[in-house]
Amino acid sequence: MLRIACPWCGARDETEFGYGGEAHVALPADAAQLSDAAWAEYLFMRSNPKGRHRERWVHTHGCRRWFNVVRDTTTERIFAVYLAGSPPAQLPDEPA
């Protein structure tokens, strides 16, 4: 079971959280102008990487806040936690 550091409440067990899939998938501002294919791309397609993944979590049984996590999908290691609405967290060993 993961231990996730909620940016507000601190480290809590995974059971307190809900998972929200990939982060930084912006709602298109001009949805009406998008082609059906482009809309489907936004709605259904996710990167699903093996390795580091920027993803959304919500502290359901705590402060109810959404936030973002950088997690390695193979090792479950969590590299960073940051507030919803912030730009993607840059890790020291990653190219900007």
């Binding site: 929200g20 709602l27 959304r56 919500v58 806040r65 959404w66 609405g85």
Partner: peptide, 8 residues
């Protein structure tokens, strides 16, 4: 509701 309010 919270998800939309907080994230979008």
């Amino acid at each position: 509701l919270e998800e939309w309010l907080q994230t979008e």
